[in-house]
Nucleic acid binder design. Structure first.
Lengths: 131, 131
DNA sequence: CGGGATCCAATTCGATACTG
DNA sequence: CAGTATCGAATTGGATCCCG
């Protein structure tokens, strides 16, 4: 197991966490995934991401734009037309995130099982305490 | 660009987000990284993770344990001795997370630069508005 | 030593209303 | 259409105290 990728003892992985804050937040990954398909407009993204509020889509896109992961192109027409797409750096991020997404999909059942067992055991212990 | 790993249109990536919530939270990744080195005790982890409170270390470890990512071994001695280590599944998660951590480390400078440029441009626009 | 329980502050996020 | 602004609810996390 190669631990060095996380840094010697902490500080580096601490820096890495800043990026995980970005990609790991509630919506960024889905936005990146959808923009990986192709350039999309604001409303298009909002329609495709179930449950996101307009506010959070704006906040998420601004954050990704600030970090150089997506580009925002405004066409000065009426009504306004704004298009979002991944930067080259954003595309490489999507590739890296794929490893984690694949892991998640591949272990969902295992995790569900682990949770069920853990919760069952916790309930058992709870039952013992009241007896 | 392979988008299929994120699912057809949303629901799957939604499930995947549950796992990113786990690995992407404030401390899990660092805990996993440290346990990747070797089995460690509670206090050892607390000492090595800068800034973590005892409460959050407990909460983080419980969550990882519930998901079957770490094991918790209690030795019934006085004073108490509790050891944590990665499960086999936890080890594979660490491998997957490495891709993202490497990406983060490799793009920190680029992201910092993008942020600086974005902020500078925002400040410029702000200056224009007040003139 | 390894927590559990509680309280409090900060942050996050959704709903709503308004705008060029 | 694509936002901005504001408010309040919910969540998160730190500090503190206590216990076996």
């Amino acid at each position: 197991m190669d631990v060095s990728a996380f840094g010697e003892h902490g500080p580096v992985s601490c820096r890495a966490r800043e990026i995980l804050d970005r990609v790991g937040d509630k919506w960024s990954l889905q936005v990146i995934a959808l923009l990986g398909e192709r350039t999309k407009r604001f409303t298009e993204l909002k329609r495709e991401i179930d449950g996101i509020s307009q506010r959070m889509l704006t906040v998420t896109l601004r954050g990704l734009e600030r970090d150089g992961i997506v580009t925002r192109t405004v066409y000065p027409v009426m009504p306004p037309r704004v298009e979002y797409s991944l930067t080259p750096m954003g595309a490489t991020l999507m590739d890296a995130a794929n490893a984690l997404v694949r892991w998640a999909e591949g272990h969902l059942d295992e995790i569900d099982a682990a949770r069920a067992e853990y919760d069952a055991r916790a309930a058992e212990i709870e039952a013992l305490k009241s007896s």
